[in-house]
Design a protein around this nucleic acid. Structure first.
Lengths: 329, 329
DNA sequence: CTGTTAGCGCATTCAG
DNA sequence: CTGAATGCGCTAACAG
């Protein structure tokens, strides 16, 4: 691999001058600069980001830790992060924690060991996440989708409680008598807040609340359990898209039609309009969430030291068919 | 951040000894080693992977360039890669090229500049991919899902032509008279091979072949065009999962029922059984593909210099409902 | 078995 | 404006 020294020799200048041409941090005589650029092109020189990171003590890479790579919500968000990072000259290492705190911990250590410039994370648990280690090492962190209690960091998320309450009220207005809720783990702020919103909107009615794992299997099991109740629900609000897949499957396997039980799901799904009845959803501005988190992160990387900011973005209730009780189906 | 020097001072040894304890490359007196380990724990020392990479001239990171992060096929495969890499002590940088050759090029440059240990890629185009630059720099490359002509590298893929022919024959056996095919770009080996398999199985029949972009929009447009033909197809084989979403949407928007037109899709989909009629698919062993590619890559990293290997994995035709002409629906 | 020395490739002093 | 010297943190070669 050609080094800065090779380029310097070829151009008949010192390595320092080559460095200056590349980084443009100080003026270089135009004719020298041109010679250097020629040599760079001629030798096909590419600066080592490794050496650069070591020398300047900062890398041009962010770590993005997402909870589940099979969830379109996170991958769409990742695109928002990636595009914004690219604009700023940063690269993104996408880390899939699989809703597993141990994996998350390993990735935090990777970010630490690679001395990355920053981290965007959807923490597996509200408490007892180890983002503190990153902050101590001077690596800025932004939380996305979920909050983290143990550290004071910027957050980008929905007003999950309000969104859940809104969806629940919608079900009640449709005339459903016994709406249930399958939420995510109570140890995530998202899970807790969506459950709280459900309970809030329920008024005095009997709560039919299950906490699951934000995965397909969890949604399946919870739905199955609900349907087996002596007095089963007539509608379910599911707290994320993957659990909704499980819910649909469980309803089908129970020999029930999805027409019989009202359904509304958090998160948009690419195929929400392709199932029968078309799925009502609480859509999040996924790409924008990623963008917003990236911008907050950039500010911290640039040295901002304000108190942490909590950015609340708007969700959108998209009523299709699955939550319409009286619609012609 | 604490350095190896800090640990050495604290333990009263030289940095070299600390390094030896960490890497276990040569024997260290047990009592010294214990002291070093204590100091490491006490100071919460974490070796800089940056410095390590620079010194040893090899990083412990792979680049994984996928064509589309919104496609479950690639993300499932990514999990296979990631798990295998982790077992070997490597980390994976997931790069989303969005079916865009320019983005792919940028990521190749990143892998080059970070002097990564290896690369697994689903090339945007069969020819004119720039993986050659990686090979020249001594970075091993394995292609996945699609082949690349310009360079001699290991490949893991299906026998796409046979799989497509098999699926087409299945449609014909069901009694469909005019099966169409929506394939991927002819510039990808996958797109070309699947189209070839379709044509092969068609015998003398009139071909109804469209090349699209492996994305939802492309599938939509192609399907719409097919349905508007004076003699439209009565069945469609779609060459990937995302285009199938577009196809379903187009069929619906044309006021046709998915029951009227036979459908079979490459790639498994999490919700294949949730639409009506349930989608028949040509399932690929996605996770295994990722694993296999990782193992090939590891061999190259370890210095293997055989001629490139082409590993062909088995696909599985999963007949559900959408391709059954005479089934009771 | 251990410490000393050197240098990976680069950016940043400091002189000139 | 330019070059020489220095060192980021670590590991490998060499002595001892």
């Amino acid at each position: 691999m050609t080094t800065i020294r090779d380029v310097a020799d070829h151009a008949g200048v010192s390595p320092a001058t080559v460095s200056r041409v590349i980084n443009g941090r100080s003026e270089v005589d135009p004719s020298l600069a041109a010679r250097v650029r020629d040599s760079i092109a001629h030798l096909d020189y590419r600066p080592s980001r490794v050496a650069r990171s070591l020398r300047s003590q900062r890398s041009m890479v962010w770590g993005l830790i997402i909870s589940d790579i099979r969830n379109p919500f996170f991958t769409d968000m990742a695109r928002g992060v990636e595009d914004t990072a690219a604009d700023e000259g940063y690269s993104v290492v996408l880390c899939n924690a699989d809703e597993d705190a141990a994996k998350e911990q390993r990735y935090i250590e990777l970010i630490l060991d690679e001395r990355m410039a920053g981290c965007i994370i959807t923490p597996a648990h509200t408490s007892d996440s180890n983002v503190g280690a990153l902050l101590e090492a001077g690596i800025p962190v932004v939380a996305v989708d979920r909050e983290v209690q143990s550290a004071a960091i910027d957050v980008v998320r929905l007003d999950n409680q309000e969104a859940a309450a809104h969806a629940t009220r919608h079900l009640l207005e449709q005339g459903y008598q016994r709406p249930a809720c399958i939420s995510g783990p109570a140890s995530t702020s998202t899970g807790a807040d969506r459950a709280a919103g459900y309970l809030e909107a329920l008024g005095g009615r009997e709560p039919l609340l299950r906490y699951a794992d934000f995965k397909v299997a969890g949604g399946y099991d919870a739905t199955q359990a609900l349907l087996r109740l002596a007095a089963p629900p007539d509608a379910i609000m599911v707290a994320n898209n993957l659990m909704t897949i499980g819910a649909l499957r469980a309803i089908d396997n129970a020999g029930r039609s999805a027409h019989e039980v009202g359904l509304i799901s958090f998160d948009e799904l690419p195929w929400a309009d392709l199932v029968e009845p078309a799925l009502s959803t609480i859509g999040q501005p996924t790409y924008k969430i990623g963008e917003a988190a990236s911008k907050l992160l950039m500010k911290r990387i640039r040295g901002r030291t304000d108190p942490p900011e909590i950015l609340t973005l708007e969700s959108k209730l998209r009523v299709r068919q699955s939550s319409l009780r009286d619609a012609i189906r």
